[in-house]
Design a protein around this nucleic acid. Structure first.
Lengths: 236, 236
DNA sequence: GCCTTGATTTGACAATTATCAAGTGAGATG
DNA sequence: CATCTCACTTGATAATTGTCAAATCAAGGC
């Protein structure tokens, strides 16, 4: 059974850039129509092509955005707490372009799309936040496209690892944040190809064992990867 | 020398979805700061990484959006009149992620980014239009990514041609809207590979001579291409 | 601890795509 | 009209990536 959002969850949402600057009354309006739901792993939350009835927010767990065509399927992104997904479809009132499934046990807030659009028209701060978030999303996908079109799979993996290292506590030793098969799909390659790419990176000082990644010295890796904020910096 | 926009050009802009619903006073504000400029072909209007000082609008001609990394370069999109480009960078006040160059003699309107952001905060209709346009752009790039990740180059070409056919006066005979080498780059392949893909499509009833494309019967082509609005319909 | 399940790895091979070099052809220029 | 330029094509070859099948490994349930 879906439940209303608790005080605790509301304040989690309120901290998001998307909701932090809006008026209390408008935030309350959104919360009144919102539901929270717990999902087990591997549940398909939304399917591409369906009408976009809800803006989703991941509170706990993680969600994979993916897309299919013909017999193939590819991972587009992984969404982690606390962030929203499917904002563009909600705003345009257009069908979802991607499907979403839980990767683990997850807690999701559902905000009716019609409420989001209504509040957008009433609250200038919210409108600005929505447009900023959308612009962010847009730039994120542009970078993903550039990554795919301008780099080989080995270069994509190298850059992915460098980014992971930069955001982890210890840049010389950390864990892969997602399963290898999903990483492969995200990077636009097969699991077998990823396996071989991982081996190939030993030449560049990268040691991967299971989920654990060791990069003692990233000099060679960086020479290969040539990272640039115009592709690799998510906040740029 | 850059010139102020003429009455004629202003009314062209006013017809765009982005500007059509906003208040006259706010539109005037935008126009007061606007410049129009004519450019010869092959001029680089903006370079990726630069700060985004202007929102651009193509009035006449055509503009290629492209991106580079290391020694490689790829075409991301072609912009035709009358439409804007680089809206996301303008809104976020972030560096351009793509470069732009004129493909032919072109007439471009430049709107100072700061003006666009200021009017966004004052005009609710404009804000709504911006967000709709941004959502549209976002979905466009998502489709581009799906196209790249889920399809082979032959399938991408097949779908491209089907889309061209659908939007042309005579679906059985039309011209390629862009040069083959740019088409190859846009579709994420080399010119040589495109040349061979074109040959391979003869099997599916497609005859290409120079710029001219003939598709007497698209049954076989569609069986190969499996077009879907979730990738191929730009307005979906 | 044993077994099951599913992810990952490996090897052999095939398909796809890129690279390099040498043509061909069409349009612009003088 | 000849020539130059540049896009496009073609052929040969190499690199990259994908496919299929089998082996290995790791985690969770009993």
């Amino acid at each position: 059974m879906p439940l209303r959002t608790s005080q605790n969850e509301s304040s989690e949402l309120r901290k998001l850039d998307l909701f932090s600057d809006m008026e209390d009354a408008h935030f309350e309006t959104l919360m009144r129509g919102a539901y929270v739901q717990n999902f087990p792993p591997a549940i398909e939350l939304i399917s591409e092509g369906e009408p976009s009835d809800f803006l989703h927010v991941v509170i706990e767990g993680s969600v994979e955005l993916f897309a299919g065509w013909s017999t193939r399927e590819t991972t587009m992104a992984t969404v982690r707490p606390v962030s929203t997904f499917i904002l563009a479809a909600t705003i345009k009132d257009a069908p979802y372009l991607m499907s979403a499934r839980t990767l683990e046990k997850s807690r999701i807030v559902l905000l009716p799309s019609s409420d989001v659009r209504a509040v957008f028209d009433q609250d200038q701060e919210f409108a600005r936040a929505v447009v900023t978030e959308l612009a962010q999303c847009y730039r994120h996908v542009v970078k993903h496209s550039k990554n795919l079109k301008l780099r080989t799979s080995l270069e994509r993996l190298a850059n992915y690892l460098i980014r992971c290292a930069e955001t982890s506590k210890d840049p010389t030793l950390f864990d892969l944040p997602i399963e290898k098969r999903r990483l492969a799909s995200f990077l636009g390659m097969t699991p077998e190809n990823l396996s071989r790419a991982i081996k190939a990176l030993k030449e560049y000082g990268v040691v991967i064992n299971g989920q654990s990644v060791g990069i003692a010295d990233d000099t060679d890796l960086r020479r290969l990867a040539k990272p640039t904020p115009l592709i690799d910096d998510p906040s740029h």
